[in-house]
């Protein structure tokens, strides 16, 4: 008897499994379809446009607008000194902001290693900037930076530096706001990594009367390194695309720092050179993929 009921239930489950195929489609297909329509299709669309002189200002007539130019857009962009200047500026921005975030974030995490009452509250308070809207963070820093009445120059005892619109300083203005916003991100990942270091390693080092520096460089750093690398990958990708924070602080146009994303916006939506804009977008995408790949290879090595 028992065996029969067992067989029964297993055929039942098999029968269900057949049914499952159609249910499975219902479960997963909507997601895949929406992602294809809103993410994948546009990707190919802009790839096609990047080989054309298309401008979104005028109606679409195949053959005229867009007319296909082959790789002319890409050649023009690569030969454009202004674009190179923007690459260098963006790279500088990425190094400054991500570097600042990594150092500060790791330092905060190390400090927060000691357990005390209110540690949770402190962590939550430090995380707050990360959950604010980047453009509003930009706006807040614009108020903070204001040379006439803002607190930034006053607190640091600086003169009337116009951080937001002076071309000498506005890149740093954005980088500082970016660091402020995203240091907590690095801090959280570093904290997760530090929390996972087995305590017995420290105890063993203690027995050997190892120095603070020895413990830090031989135990802490190697154990946390993979997580720091993940933070580095995420932040580099994001910093390369920075748009919101800068738009909040400096806006676009003459007062904006010469970043790629701002010029991408200007090309595509202000001067309406949609074709070239798409090509520039693709160049940025390829760079991001290349950098990420290098980091990921490094990460895999570090994990071993």
């Amino acid at each position: 008897m028992a065996r029969r009921s067992n067989e029964n239930s297993s055929t039942l489950i098999q029968y269900r499994a057949l049914q499952d195929q159609s249910i499975l489609r219902m479960f997963i297909l909507p997601t895949i379809i929406l992602l294809i329509v809103i993410n994948v299709f546009p990707l190919f669309y802009s790839l096609i446009l990047s080989f054309s002189n298309f401008t979104a200002k005028f109606p679409l007539v195949w053959g005229k607008n867009p007319r296909f130019l082959g790789i002319e857009n890409y050649i023009r962009l690569i030969n454009d000194p202004d674009i190179w200047h923007r690459f260098v500026t963006t790279a500088k921005y990425v190094v400054l902001s991500v570097g600042g975030e990594m150092i500060l974030g790791f330092a905060f995490a190390l400090l927060l290693q000691i357990k005390f009452k209110g540690r949770e509250i402190i962590t939550t308070l430090l995380v707050l900037p990360m959950t604010m809207s980047p453009v509003i963070v930009g706006l807040m820093w614009k108020l903070f930076y204001d040379p006439n009445w803002g607190m930034f120059n006053y607190l640091l005892g600086l003169g009337k530096i116009d951080w937001a619109t002076d071309l000498k300083y506005n890149l740093y203005a954005s980088a500082i706001a970016d660091i402020w916003m995203w240091t907590p991100f690095v801090m959280l990942l570093a904290l997760a990594g530090l929390g996972a270091v087995p305590q017995y390693l420290y105890e063993a080092a203690e027995v050997d009367r190892a120095s603070w520096w020895y413990k830090f460089s031989r135990i802490t750093l190697p154990m946390v390194w993979p997580l720091l690398l993940i933070a580095l990958i995420f932040r580099t990708m994001e910093a390369f695309k920075v748009f919101d924070v800068t738009m909040g602080i400096s806006g676009r146009g003459a007062s904006a720092p010469a970043l790629l994303s701002i010029s991408l916006y200007d090309t595509a939506f202000v001067t309406w050179k949609t074709g070239i804009g798409s090509a520039l977008g693709y160049i940025v995408l390829i760079i991001i993929i290349a950098i990420t790949n290098i980091f990921v290879k490094y990460l895999n090595k570090a994990k071993q």
């Binding site: 993410n39 669309y45 802009s46 991408l264 949609t274 804009g277």
Partner: peptide, 21 residues
């Protein structure tokens, strides 16, 4: 992985075709 990669795209590159669509 495909699902994840859609998130990694820079929004600016999707923005132009989405705007046209």
């Amino acid at each position: 992985f495909f699902i994840l990669s859609t998130r990694m795209l820079p929004p600016v590159i999707v923005l132009i075709p989405v705007f046209l669509m």
